[in-house]
Amino acid sequence: MTAPAILPERGLADRLTAFFWRHPKTFLALLLTPPLLWLGVVYLGSLFTLLLQSFYSIDEFSGMVKPEFTLKTYAELLRPSNFDVILRTLLMSAAVTLGCAVLAFPIAYYAARFARGRWKAVFYLGIMLPLWSSYLVKVYAWKLILAKEGIITWASEATHTTAILNAVLALPVIGGNSLSTSYIGMFLVFVYVWIPYMILPMQAALERVPTSMLEASQDLGASRSQTFRTVILPLALPGVIAGSIFTFSLTMGDYIIPQIVGNSANFIGMAVYQLQGTAGNIPLAAAFSMVPIVIMLIYLSLAKRAGAFDAL
């Protein structure tokens, strides 16, 4: 007697298994329905509500939201006071992105090309831990550092460089009463908080530069700096662009740092927060938040064309 090739069914579980085997599409739909329902309803639904609100306006007399389609609210964004906020945010985002790229490069370069064994792990954890550790704690730490009575002032007094610090603070526009109330301070905190997002994609891109290409470059008579400029940098560029997506977007949307550090100048994130909260002007807040969305969509499509997505 030979054993049957097909085992007998042992109840519901087996029957379901057979059903899924015959209908893989149904199984797929079953897997996807809960997460898609969640993201579709909770997330896309809310985003859509926001978009809708941005086409409403506020009644000037009653202060109530008028649910009629209008572009008036978007026109308000072009008012000098509001447009300044957008411009300031974009400038800060660009500066922070540049600062992150410059500071991140040596770390990423060393971690990708020279760190081996133990040091590789040290660098990996050394970048990963600040990336994931508490955002507020990091901001708070800088509040301590930049305070007028804080460690920087102390260090400059101890090294007799107070004059330099004062000269920096006396700079027009970016200077201020103390580091914690100036644009310089805000810039430093932004760079500190977002720099891991720049290092990681940069390091990934640098790690993918094949050693054979560097050898070829040397065989063809290039000096070290020539190899660096003409081989390594262009190949690392997609990584830099990938990192800049994060640093730019995160700076643009942040409203905690400008609130805690800096001269209380308004930024897009803060404007959104204040407009929806104390001012109760949800339509204008919604219109304001469309600015980062549109800019990021343009940025992402440009980055995609530059091949940055492969470096993510």
């Binding site: 926001l50 977007s249 949307g253």
Partner: peptide, 19 residues
């Protein structure tokens, strides 16, 4: 759709949920 909630700034997620 999955990466959108972290690709867009948090303030956007926040205000959309709020509204």
């Amino acid at each position: 759709l999955i990466i959108l909630p972290i690709a867009l700034p948090g303030v956007i997620t926040g205000i959309s949920l709020r509204s």
